[in-house]
Amino acid sequence: MRARVDAMKSSRPPRTRTADPTPPPNFWRRGNYLPYIAFGSCGLLLFAVGFGLLRLVWTLGSGDPAAWNAIFESYGHPLYLAFHAFALVALTWFTFRFFRLFPKTQPPKLGPLPRPPDSVFLLGLGGAFFVATTLASLVLGGALP
């Protein structure tokens, strides 16, 4: 990757000829870039999973039991299984990273209220994650209608 030639340029012309800006060499292998890029790339995964869910809802709305069953049969395909296993691991990592970053983004005061301690955010968000995962597991496992 290259830095844009107009990165950090002034609105006024420079007093002497300048060399173009360059990014640090091999920047993407340094520091936190790889997790950062992976975190951002999970957006594409969420996009794909979201489309899968929309397809399900669309088929459900069409009221055709054969089409509904065909979708569930397609989920048994090895490629689908691999995709869902990968999505489960990636999105779990994404969620935990998100929950780790979220408390840092809260300002010391929100209007008149002081910022709650980090543990409150972590408990709240972790609790929501646990409840959502348990509910989904119960529904998919057939324990809940």
Binding site: A3, M8, K9, P14, T16, T18, D20, P21
Partner: peptide, 19 residues
């Protein structure tokens, strides 16, 4: 410094930053 125009050797153009 990366991402800055270079004036000379190790000296970068700071005007963009000041703006």
């Amino acid at each position: 410094l990366a991402n800055f125009p270079v004036v000379r050797d190790l000296v970068i153009e700071m005007d963009g930053f000041m703006e």
